[in-house]
Design a protein around this nucleic acid. Structure first.
Ligand SMILES: [Mn+2]
Ligand SMILES: [Mn+2]
Ligand SMILES: [Mn+2]
Ligand SMILES: [Mn+2]
Lengths: 216, 216
DNA sequence: TTAAAAATTTAGATTAGTCTAAAAATAATA
DNA sequence: TATTATTTTTAGACTAATCTAAATTTTTAA
């Protein structure tokens, strides 16, 4: 088995890989709040274990084996988040830190039974897809609200930013997953947006619009 | 906060303390499958943190602070075991190892909400009492079946031995928690016992009788 | 009450993960 | 292309938890 730390590195590499082709030492260091030198050490170890493809100075990618491990961590993380919200009445901004711990519980049986218990949910509380036991999932086709043009509608389906502050803000203005919105006006100066949400007009900044994802 | 390892030491000392007044280095080493030298190192650290009372060569006891921590670990362990059996359909012999990991999840909120979700259970699947959030619990007055005399009855309420092999055996012969038994005959040669369980006669060894606990 | 046995502690290493500072390689740019 | 800036790696050190082997203390029992 892999250590806690190894799992966190693999997960970080996995997440960074969804945005960049190859992942750099510095990117990993930033995402794990650690130092580049520590990352290099760990990359050597993960390469020895055939979990990543790594050549000095060239960045890394996950090996098929490493991706499998990463996906199992992501699966656990998202299933636990779903459990916390749906069964234990946590708020969506309260679950991430707890799931960061729960995702390392090793029992395969546990996660599969948990999945069963909850009826095989497909998305976590933030709209992120939950891989099945084979690591498969279908991602929604998501676009930031900021990419919509005036008079188009969409359904809130995910977030790009997971900080409690952002999630709490969305909750406060009732911009939560599942709601339909319509873009009414785009301010051409600062790209802020006025939208229609359940018969109410709502004003959001460009920043918010960038981090809020919808399906058409 | 305390590390996993520190928590495991405190828990081990707690359990050993229920049987002996003061706990020895070797007892801890045996219970944690580690070496006496390692235990000594850890005892120094725990003493520095005021979690135990320790004087070289004299054995240890938990400080009030240390007992509080130990009880919170025990609470989490037993609540998770209950959850696994009652909600996820684990068997009572399958939960201990998983709970050994889950007991270290730190979120206070999580364990309290889990407790709430399950309706504040008082006993875990093995009949062990679950401390409440203040560390309080009332233990049943338990006696081994081997201490009963002929023609007395009792309700199976706990086990002294938690190995999967023992638990599976009990399950197989349907000697599970909640059932009423009556002692019919005690073999004076080997102290094996014949008892009545739901109109069926059942024969158990002295060893089993010693590790099976009842309330009157 | 002393000698042997058992328990415990100390000394010195090892491994995982981390760090800072310095060196080396790569990328950017003049 | 040559120089500078940035990124990455190496070197060397530190902490937590562990180990074996040796020394010390306590216990047992002759
Ligand atoms: Mn999360
Ligand atoms: Mn999430
Ligand atoms: Mn247990
Ligand atoms: Mn138990």
């Amino acid at each position: 088995m892999n250590t806690f730390t190894e799992e966190n590195y693999l997960k970080a590499i996995y997440h960074l890989s969804t945005q960049h082709d190859s992942v750099s030492t510095n990117q990993i260091a930033a995402s794990l709040n650690t130092r580049a030198a520590s990352v290099t050490d760990m990359l050597k170890k993960l390469a020895d274990k055939r979990l990543i493809n790594y050549e000095r100075y060239q960045g890394v990618t996950l090996s098929p084996q490493g991706e499998k491990v990463a996906l199992s961590i992501v699966r656990k993380h998202r299933l636990w988040e779903y459990f916390l919200v749906e069964k234990l009445n946590f708020k969506w901004d309260e679950v991430h830190e707890v799931a960061e711990e729960l995702e390392h519980i090793s029992s395969r049986d546990l996660v599969d039974r948990l999945d069963e218990f909850m009826g095989h949910p497909k998305f976590d509380p933030h709209g992120d897809p939950i891989p099945d036991k084979n690591g498969h999932f279908k991602a929604n086709e998501l676009k930031p609200v900021s990419s919509l043009s005036v008079n188009t509608t969409g359904i809130i389906s995910g977030v790009r930013e997971h900080s409690p502050a952002f999630l709490q803000y969305l909750e406060k203005i009732k911009l939560v997953i599942g709601k339909e919105i319509k873009v009414c006006e785009i301010n051409s100066y600062d790209h802020s947006i006025t939208l229609l949400l359940e018969d109410e007009m709502l004003y959001i900044s460009r920043d918010v619009a960038n981090n809020l994802l919808i399906t058409l």
